[in-house]
Amino acid sequence: MNAELAALDGPRPDRRDPEIRHFWDGLTERELRAQVCADCQGVQWPPRAACVKCQSLQLTWHVIAGSGTLSTWTEVHRTGLAGYQDLVPYAVGIVEIDETPVRMVGYIHTPDIDTLVAGERLVVRFAERGEGVVLPVWHRESEGA
């Protein structure tokens, strides 16, 4: 599964980033996590140094659903990103996560990009990249994900 991404020699996240590292830490445990404000309980994405609703600096991380719907996407035919150059054409888009107001960028795995439709159901899978990096990969329910 996800052999193409497992073999990817692409850009790696900075695991020292004080906000974003929690997202990547969660992925190594096969969890999708988002930032939650300890004061107003607002869920926010992307993760920031302060809550955008109440400006609290007390921020925590919660596990969110590993499923969602496709909002928009692009079919990439040209990229400057190492590794991804071997994968074109591929789809990357915005996924609206179930049960929480989080919309995040996601790589969408499908052999059939032409048939993607807005609002279709997606499920996250995890692709081991080696050296402690696990990528979230969105699969289509319609393809038996």
């Binding site: 996240p13 900075d14 980033d17 997202f23 990229t79 990357v92 960028v105």
Partner: peptide, 21 residues
């Protein structure tokens, strides 16, 4: 930090891609 931490590792990087979204 979002570009490098949440987009480039997932295959999104160029203006033509984000604007096409």
């Amino acid at each position: 930090q979002f570009r490098h931490g949440l987009e480039h590792p997932l295959g999104l990087s160029l203006p033509v891609q984000t604007y096409s979204l």
